[in-house]
Each structure stands twice: as C-alpha cells, then as structure tokens.
Design a protein around this nucleic acid. Sequence first.
DNA 1: CTTGTGTCCTGTAGGC
DNA 2: TGCCTACAGGACACAA
Length: 276
Amino acid sequence: MPELPEVETICRQLGPLVTNRVIKDVVIRRQDIVGFPDVRRFKSELNGKRVEKIERQGKYLIFNLSQGFLLIVHLRLSGHLRFVNDGARLKYERIRFIFKGGGALVFVEPRVLGRAYLVKNGELPASLKGLRELGVEPISACWTPGYLAQFLEWRKAPIKTLLLDQRICAGVGNIYSDEALFRARVQPMRPAGSLSNNEIVRLAQSLRQVLNKAIQFLGTTMKDERYHLPDGKSGRFQHHLMVFNREGMPCRVCGTKIKRIKIGKRSSYFCPGCQR
DNA sequence: CTTGTGTCCTGTAGGC
DNA sequence: TGCCTACAGGACACAA
C-alpha cells in the first residue's frame, strides 16, 4: 500500500524519466480508473501536453503539464506506475501514457480503486476534495508537536484512527502509523485525548523519523504487496519494520509477541510489552 | 462536530 | 480438486 514514502520514491524516480516529455497518446483499458473528467476529454486533452514537473502531496502524485493542466494520480491500495520502453501489455494495466520519442508510463492497478484525474490548476473537482483538505505532512517544517496536539484534544477516537486522517497527518497510512506508535511507545487504541504531552512529542517525532527512514530505504515492499518502483525493483524498508505484519513474532526490543487487533476495519499491530 | 459503518474493487488465502 | 466466503485497505458517503 503506497503511503508517503512510497509515493515520494516513485515521484523522485519518475522525475528524470518523464520531465519534458510530451504525451502523444493515451490508452485507457479500464474506464472507471479515470476519476475526472469524462474518459473522452481525459484522453483528448492530455494529447500533446508536456510534463513540466512532477511533485507529491500526501499520497497524491501530481504531474504539472503544459498550459496549466495537472495530471493527478492516487494509487490507493495496490496501484503502481511503471516506466517502460516497449509496447508489451503489463498485467493489470489500466492506463498507458505514451510519450513522443519512445517510452511510456503505465498505470497498473489490480484492484481498480486507484484513480487518475486531469484538472486545470486551481480548479479541483469535488472528487478531489481530499487533496484540497490535506493536512500537514510529518516530514514538513510545519510539523510540530503543537500542530498534532490541537487535533487530539478531547478526542475519544483511537489515536491510530486520527493518524490515518489525511486532514491531520498527510501521507500517513496503515504501516507507518503502526510503526510510529511503536517508536513512541503508545498503544494504537488509546483515546487520542488521553495522550500526555510527552507522548504527543514522541509521536510527532516518531512519525517524522519513520517516514524519513522509509524514504531512505525507498519504501516498503511486502512480499504479497504490489508496491514497486517505476523500474520494477523493490523497496527495502520491510526489513526494518518493528511491528507491522509481525503478528505472533517476538518484539525486536523486548521479545514480547506482537499482537494484531482491529481498529475500525484496519489491522493494527503493536507490542503489548513496549507500548502503553 | 464526532464517531462508527458500509462501499468501492479484485486477487488471494483459508475452510470444507 | 474446486467452490465459496472472508479479507485486505484508502478515501469517502452517510447514519446516528
């Protein structure tokens, strides 16, 4: 599941491959992967546009195109982007952006939950309100314990739920929320409002540290996951996970068996020995 | 406003 | 072996 570190890695690696390239054709193999506008306009308006810059906001990947257009991609759970040099159709290929002069960017998405949007700069449709309402990223200079604390006051929801709220912690998903809570020694089901100042400080720091570390290791590729880099290679942060996907295995710090619980509909992993 | 639940979507894992 | 169901999960709509 691509979260901030995975999308950041994809963004960095795609940059040199797509910048200044001109789109000469778009092949849409699954219509419902296009979130905005309708498929016809998506295809025709992309034609001839040049990629000026690629950037990331939260888990959104944003291609700045000529004439003020933005191609916005959200990979959701299982989507990924591949840059290829031949025309061979990939498994689960949904959209192919073909560049003038050779090469293509392929949006591969087995579960068809990911979306691609084409919008004019500053004219975000309702379907992209998640992007508009994005909170602060834990790797940003604006991320402070005070910023996080204002959202936790009086809240009864589990802290884990609020870490997954993109309006609060932009870019954080299931893996890194669990990993940050472990590093901060806070149990995921704790009511958010019950965290002490110290715990909030630790949590704010942990989020920043774990995301930066994961970016250094090019993200997390679980063995059953589909996140890969644009060249098909794997990330390496999975070797550094402390709790995620480690149910029943001994904690790397204290040896206690890692527990898995459900919070909302999501799996949460934590160490009952280390986390309070 | 807050919180919890259902939905989207499809491949895979597990039960029988 | 093969069918069937549950599950995975980010974002969002909606109900209480």
